[in-house]
Design a binder for these strands. Structure first.
Length: 485
DNA sequence: AGCACA
């Protein structure tokens, strides 16, 4: 009775030009592997830090004979293979080539992604992190956040060399003993898992309890961070208050009919100037971000539209919440996004959607402080490249008040998915203030809302049909209107 | 000290 034989140990393993190395020191760098193996032949690929303990590796030789040479050499050698004095066990791999030799986190860069295991976000302050990592060089920026993986921090160094020295020294280690006294007593172990981020320059908008930009001491302090809030904002009545924002997140339920940027613009313009719109898909559901100039307008729109349907019959029901974003960075004119603050885009939009006043080109932000420009390739050079304020449609990310201190690709920001340029990327960009509201200012528009719009069945007086009907959408014979359920 | 990915 022949079974498919269980794999035996090395004696019956078929040779492969890929070798499996075990019992490596966990610090083992690719260079050390190469050092060990290159006397036997040309190494074409490696994979380091494999296994739960990250103490295994694979090395692929150019030629099978080279791998055989190495295995047989150490099989008969009196001196075992060693890395830093540690005996390394070598055998043929059961695969014949190394695929995916590097995970994204292993590609060196100047920004580290640090996961601090076994702690809550409040346990390890950004100052402790700064202290620990400053041992390896000047830390430019830090952004911390909580994800499923735990408490994480992005730490930006000047270059990949500095970053890798920090990673090599700290990956897998606990926070060094000399700073442990800075941690709360209940924090027992807090191991650091460190990989490289694909980011090259973090976009820090405020000095706050969760983000720092050490290159720019003049960066404004996030007002909400002064009190060091670690708990949700609380309203006057003591109840938990949802964090407000000038940007609304709209989920569109029961979307039987296409909802275009123009439709959304029409709907949301009833409450004030819509600055930017971005439509995207999330979990198979269509969502949209709608940016107003201020929180008040957004609050009014939210109150009025929540639970209402764009089309009669329960179609395209809106669910609104506040986004964490305060300023969207969207393509000026595409089928999924619109930036009405850009004069050209407004013109373009006006060609298609007649009847809407173009947003005024107000680019000066009175709130703007001298700012550090945090785009992908920023640095001294890009700061100089900034044009003077008030000139044309620049992308100067003027500072604006807001509570989002660190904004990036939604939901994927610190994770392992990096969209460099695909899709809308939300980050800092200018928020031109003082755009003239379509109807009324924020304060009066709230009275407007209280007069009727928020009442089910009381549609706002603005209908897409009036010069802005979305092409061929909506139920037959029905122009978009608002119906309470 | 015993085989990787997502």
């Amino acid at each position: 009775m022949s079974t498919s034989g269980t794999p035996q140990f090395r004696y019956t393993q078929t040779p492969s030009k890929v070798l499996h190395l075990r019992n490596l020191p966990w610090e083992c760098a690719e260079e050390e592997l190469i050092e060990l193996c290159k006397p036997f032949g040309k190494i074409v690929n490696t994979k380091c830090n494999v296994g739960a303990n990250r103490n295994q590796a694979f090395v692929e030789f150019a030629d099978l004979n080279q791998a055989i040479n190495m295995v047989s050499y150490y099989a008969s050698s009196s001196e075992p293979a060693q890395v830093r004095g540690k005996t390394v066990y070598i055998q043929y791999s059961n695969r014949h080539e190394i695929v995916n030799n590097k995970s994204p986190g292993d590609v060196p860069g100047n920004v580290l992604l640090v996961t601090i295991e076994g702690v809550e976000a409040g346990d390890v302050s950004i100052d402790v992190i700064h202290l620990v990592f400053s041992a390896f060089g000047f830390v430019h920026k830090i952004a911390t956040f909580e994800k499923a993986a735990g408490f994480q921090a992005l730490i930006q160094f000047n270059d990949a060399e500095t970053a890798s020295s920090a990673r090599n020294a700290l990956d897998g280690r606990s926070i060094p003993r000399h700073v442990l006294y800075l941690l709360p007593e209940h924090v027992g172990s807090c191991h650091l898992r460190i990989s490289y981020s694909a980011h090259t320059d973090l976009n820090i908008k405020f000095q706050s309890h969760r983000s720092r930009d050490y290159t720019n001491p003049y960066l404004p302090v996030n007002p909400t961070a002064i009190e060091g809030i670690m708990q949700p904002a609380v309203g006057p009545d003591g109840k938990k208050k949802e964090l407000e924002s000038n940007v609304l997140l709209a989920s569109i339920e029961n979307m039987q009919y296409a909802v275009t940027v123009d439709v959304l613009h029409t709907v949301f313009s009833a409450f004030g100037t819509v600055q930017k719109i971005a439509i995207f898909e999330k979990n198979g559901q269509t969502q949209a971000l709608v940016q107003y100039p201020d929180v008040n307008t957004a609050a009014v729109a939210r109150e009025a539209l929540e639970g209402h349907c764009i089309y009669d019959g329960g179609y395209c029901k809106l669910h609104l919440s506040y986004s964490r974003h305060t300023d969207l960075n969207v393509k000026a004119f595409s089928d999924k996004s619109r930036d009405y603050t850009i004069p050209e885009a407004s013109l373009l939009a006006a060609q298609q959607v007649s009847g809407y006043p173009a947003a005024p080109a107000a680019w000066q932000n009175p709130q703007a402080a001298p700012m550090y420009h945090g785009n992908e390739f920023s640095g001294a050079a890009s700061m100089q490249a900034q044009g003077p304020p008030g000139q044309g449609p620049s992308w100067d990310p003027a500072m604006q008040a807001g509570r989002s201190t660190f904004v990036s690709v939604p939901s994927t920001f610190p994770g392992q998915t990096f969209h460099a340029s695909s899709g809308p990327v939300y980050s800092s960009a200018a928020m031109p203030p003082g755009s003239s509201p379509l109807q009324t200012g924020p304060t009066t528009s709230s009275s407007m809302a209280s007069r009727g719009i928020s009442q089910p069945g009381g549609p706002p007086n603005l209908r897409p049909g009036g010069g802005a009907s979305p092409p061929g959408v909506g139920p037959p014979g029905a122009s978009p209107s608002y119906y309470g359920q």
